[in-house]
């Protein structure tokens, strides 16, 4: 499914963070940046190098919503459901995307690992409501139809790569 974890890259992350257990959050963020999630294999390795237990790192990783222990899609779509976006109808966009991708509240990533669909509480761009981001690029004044167009473009783009 996903590539085997690159321990060399992991070491670089550890060096950057001085092998300090106090930097565990920053270390997990860096790993997530490399892999789009935190691979299970990283936990025992980190535990050994940082001198804390695997269970403790698991505790930190599960405490924060932002960390993912499951592989995420190539495109991470975040739909803002803050107050402003919500009243300007973000939910129909969410529902449309879920229907189209066959996803749900529990299953957020497509089996082909192309898309991950998440909601966020506020992206701080309320003036553009409703807002979605795709891999941190912001798209304002969304509608379910516009979202479908975007989705189609992304699918085609990845088809071309193949």
């Amino acid at each position: 499914m996903e590539q085997v974890i690159d321990f060399k890259a992991l070491d670089e992350v550890l060096v950057k963070n001085n092998f300090s257990k106090n930097n565990i959050i920053s270390i997990l963020q860096d790993i997530q940046e490399q892999h789009r999630y935190i691979p299970h294999e990283a936990f025992p390795y980190l535990a050994e190098k940082l001198g804390i237990s695997t269970a403790k790192i698991f505790g930190v990783a599960t405490f924060y919503e932002n960390f993912s222990l499951e592989p995420k899609g190539k495109y991470i779509i975040k739909i803002c459901d803050g107050t402003a976006c919500h009243v300007r109808k973000s939910i129909p966009i969410l529902n449309k995307l879920r229907d189209e991708l066959g996803l749900s509240k529990e299953k957020i990533t497509t089996d082909d690992l192309l898309f991950t669909l998440e909601t966020v509480s506020c992206l701080g761009a309320c003036g553009l409501a409703p807002v979605i981001t795709i891999n941190d690029k912001v798209y304002g004044a969304m509608t379910p139809e516009k979202a479908m167009v975007l989705l189609k473009e992304l699918k085609e783009a990845s088809e071309d790569v193949k």
Binding site: I52, T54, F58, L69
Partner: peptide, 25 residues
């Protein structure tokens, strides 16, 4: 488990009402 025994087999996981004591994974 952590402070006296240095084993750390279990720890808090998740948050708020979801919080539980768990081993890794």
């Amino acid at each position: 488990c952590d402070e006296v025994q240095n084993v750390g087999a279990i720890d808090f996981a998740y948050r708020g009402s979801e919080m539980r004591i768990s081993t890794a994974f």
